[in-house]
Amino acid sequence: MRVSLSRVCRVAAVPLLSALLLTGSGTATAAEAPDLPERVSALTWNLCGGYQGCVEWGKPQEKVDWVVKAVEDDPGVAVIMLQEVCLGLHTEPLQERLGDQWQVQFRAAPNTSTPQDPNDLTPCSADTRALPPGDAPSPLLGDDEQGHDQRVQAGGRRDLAGVLVAMKKLPGSELHPVNMTFVQDPQQGAACIKDTGNLLFACSSHFMNKNADPDGTSRVTSGHNFRDQTVHLQAQGYRTIIGGDLNATPDSEPLQPLYDGNFEADVNMKRPTFSGQKLDHILFGDYGWDLLGASVHFAGEMQGMSSIETYFGRKLSDHWMLKGSVTPTA
Rank of each mutant, 00 (worst) to 15 (best):
G142P: 13
D135K: 13
G156T: 01
G162W: 00
A136Y: 15
A161T: 10
Q150V: 07
M167P: 03
A161R: 07
V165A: 10
K169A: 14
A161N: 08
Q150L: 12
R157S: 05
M167V: 10
K169T: 13
T128V: 14
L141S: 02
P139C: 10
L140W: 01
G162A: 07
P139K: 06
M167A: 14
M167H: 09
P137Q: 03
V165N: 13
D143W: 12
D144P: 06
R151F: 07
D135F: 12
P139N: 12
H148S: 13
R158P: 07
H148L: 14
K169R: 15
D144Y: 03
V152R: 11
V152P: 09
Q153N: 08
A154M: 05
L131T: 10
K169F: 08
V152I: 15
L160Q: 01
S138Q: 12
A130T: 12
Q153W: 15
D143V: 13
A166T: 01
G142H: 11
G162I: 00
P133K: 04
M167K: 05
L131C: 05
Q150C: 08
V163L: 04
L164Q: 02
R158T: 13
S138E: 14
G156N: 02
L141E: 02
A166I: 00
A130W: 07
L140G: 01
R158I: 11
K169C: 08
V165R: 07
V163D: 04
